[in-house]
Nucleic acid binder design. Structure first.
Length: 622
RNA sequence: CGGGCCGUAGCGCAGUUUGGUAGCGCGACUGGUUUGGGACCAGUAGGUCGGAGGUUCAAAUCCUCUCGGCCCGACCA
């Protein structure tokens, strides 16, 4: 399919001027003026400021493959163009957005003393073997790998712990050189199972990744808090509604971690939170107050009952009136993979609750867990799927149980025989005592672990993630420094990521209406557009140019829409593109009147030319 | 990885059931008329129907294979 368009196609401008192909860029009708901007004030990006000189191609229809608002709008506005599944070209205006966001990130990280560096995308296998991640990432298919002409294995960096650790290890030899925090803003590559939602889950994407190196845990705690504070400032400056949640540290590994979530219906992550206590956590990590279930009473003798065809908790409730799910224990068989072995294990959970596979993987320190197949279940239990249980379970199948089953009596369980279940089972008496773990999936409505009030659920887009890695990578890679006592000591590390291309998409997800994008001013491609509605009328052109110049010298990131389009088309186009403040110079130009639009809320009003500057500044909150 | 659906002009789609001259809207280009909510008239260009093989007098259409894309699911016993 060529929905991405013919890439070689000669481009034309809206106003009919053809690109000068020899020079490879548009002929300029007039030179761009130099910009005057005090550094460090606001994130601004230089470039041509006349829309007639900027490649813009908006579409009338949503692209067929877009599902969520940000993807539809970014594609329809021509801001992103798909090159391959999960791989996008950023149009000039979108690149301005990304650069502005990146600049905000830089400002805030630099303010905390972080160093920007640039690490290679192409990385050698050896580095990844040192940390032990090569096999895992290759097996999980996350990583793009390639061979060079000598046959050496390389990969396209999905993340940069290894390279950064190796780099800092080579440069830092003494505790006196710390703390150190280095970051980069760089393309990352992950061969996602299912790229989707435009920039949200791509296979190539821009990411800021920072790594802190400290001599001890206390140093890491300080570094972590600094980064946390910087992250808050970054997302606040972008005007995003976000929340910080406790998270599982996942494939990266390490101890504590928090995620920065932009709240949006289309978010891929589910979070549980409590407004009373401020508790917020990714569902993978969340805990809750254990819901009550009826007690089992004094232990009774176990009995085995024929239950032909009854395989699920719901079916058992129907089959045994009076036995509620809370008095059952389901036994789910998982195929677990460790670094050096794989095995099927049995996991017990109270019948009315669910297993959290992330917690399971962590509890058994596994690389991966998945539900066992029907064949694996048959092999491990001797029974068909639906009848697994602790009673009579083969000794070589490890038995785990969630703490919700601790001290529970007279349970209803499977007994590894097709067509039978057991009643009044007491763990440790009728079967092995399982090893107890916390494996339960917390759910909305259950009590907040802090306040006890019901937990609320929301969807979130993960735009940032901070981890306390500790010595996981430095130990594995033997990255050490000399401590005060002259002993080689592994670095205590933190790592911190921000989705630099994802965040602007998340911003759109939170800021749009039926007319198009409503960019937050801090990352809008331009803060303001001055549009002449009929460029052939001299008074319009002159007034537009004048206002454009005034706004520029007032420090506004403004562009001049001098494209030759009909007025209606120009309104629609600018609304779709979403510039926060829009000034239209039209038929009342001769009287010194223009039209003033604040994109958010679409408030439109007439305005004297002399007041434009003040009103634009006010609308931008200056 | 499993299931479903889709590949026809730059974009959005019809045509496939029942084989018979490749279509529509938008966009693009030329000329003209327009100029306040994606203008109008006239004309023009643009497609080996994702690819390969097969069946047939004849294939976008039927068959086989293949490549690409999209969606859903990824299992609670």
């Amino acid at each position: 399919m060529h929905s991405g368009g013919r890439l070689w196609r000669c481009r034309w401008h809206r106003d009919g001027r053809r690109l000068d192909r020899r020079r490879g860029r548009p002929r300029l009708s007039c030179g761009a003026r130099p910009e005057f901007r005090r550094p460090g004030q606001r994130a601004t990006v230089r470039g041509p400021m006349r829309l007639s000189q900027i490649l813009i191609s908006t579409l009338r229809d949503d692209p067929a493959d877009a599902e969520i608002p940000s993807h539809k709008l970014l594609a329809r506005a021509g801001l992103i163009v798909k090159t391959a599944a999960g791989v996008y070209t950023f149009a000039p205006l979108m690149w301005r957005v990304v650069k502005k966001f990146a600049q905000i990130v830089r400002d805030e990280l630099d303010a905390e003393g972080a160093n920007e560096v640039m690490l290679p995308i192409i990385q050698p296998k050896e580095l990844w073997q040192q940390s032990g991640r090569w096999d895992r990432y290759v097996r999980d298919g996350i990583m793009f790998t390639l061979k060079d002409r000598k046959g050496s294995d390389m990969c396209l960096g999905p993340t940069h712990e290894e390279v950064m650790t190796a780099y800092v290890n080579a440069q830092v030899n003494s505790y006196k050189q710390m703390p150190v925090n280095c970051y980069q803003i760089q393309d990352k590559f992950r061969d996602e199972i299912r790229p989707r939602f435009g920039l949200m889950r791509g296979r190539e994407f821009l990411m800021m990744d920072a790594y802190s190196f400290d001599a001890d845990q206390a140093g890491l705690d300080v570094a972590y808090q600094k980064m946390r504070a910087a992250y808050c400032r970054i997302f606040e400056r972008c005007g995003l509604q976000y929340t910080v949640v406790q998270a599982d540290s996942g494939a990266i590994g390490g101890a504590g971690s928090e995620e920065f979530m932009v709240i949006a219906d289309s978010g891929e992550d589910s979070i549980l939170y409590c407004q009373d206590s401020g508790y917020a956590a990714n569902v993978e990590k969340a805990t809750s107050v254990l819901p009550v279930a009826p007690a089992g009473g004094e232990p009774r003798p176990m009995q085995k009952i024929a239950t032909p065809g009854v395989k699920t908790v719901a079916q058992l409730e129907a089959f045994f009136p009076g036995w509620v799910a809370g008095r059952m224990a389901k036994t789910v068989l998982y195929h677990v993979t460790w670094k050096d072995k794989e095995k099927v294990v049995a996991v017990m959970m109270r019948g009315d609750l669910e297993i959290n596979e992330v917690k399971l993987a962590n509890a058994v320190d596994a690389l991966a867990v998945r539900l066992a197949t029907d064949e694996e279940i048959k092999a491990a239990t001797g029974a068909d799927t639906g009848f697994a249980g602790p009673v009579g379970l083969r000794d070589d199948v490890p038995l785990l149980a969630d703490e919700s089953l601790k001290d529970r009596t007279n349970l209803l369980v499977g007994c590894n025989e097709t067509g039978f279940h057991c009643l009044d089972v007491n763990l440790g008496r009728d079967c092995r005592m399982p090893s107890w773990k916390e494996l339960r999936l917390a759910r909305a409505g259950e009590g907040c672990p802090v306040s006890g009030k019901p937990l609320q659920q929301a969807r979130g887009i993960e735009v940032g993630h901070i981890f306390k890695l500790g010595t996981k990578y430095s130990k594995a890679m033997q990255a050490t420094f000399m401590d005060q006592g002259g002993k080689p000591t592994p670095f205590v590390m933190g790592c911190y990521g921000i989705g630099v291309s994802r965040t602007p998409a998340a911003a759109v997800e939170q800021n749009f209406d039926d007319k198009g994008i409503v960019w937050p001013p801090a990352i809008a491609p331009f803060e303001c557009v001055v549009a002449m509605l009929d460029g052939k009328r001299e008074e319009q052109q002159a007034l537009a140019e004048k206002l454009y110049g005034e706004l520029r010298s007032a420090g506004v990131d403004v562009c001049l829409d001098d494209r030759a389009m009909s007025p209606g088309a120009k309104f629609k186009d600018n609304e779709l593109l979403g510039f926060p403040v829009q000034v239209f110079v039209g038929r009342k130009a001769a009287e010194g009147q223009v039209e003033f639009l604040v994109r958010r809320g679409m408030q439109k009003s007439e305005c004297a030319a002399g007041e434009v500057r003040a009103r634009v500044l006010a609308a931008l909150g200056r």
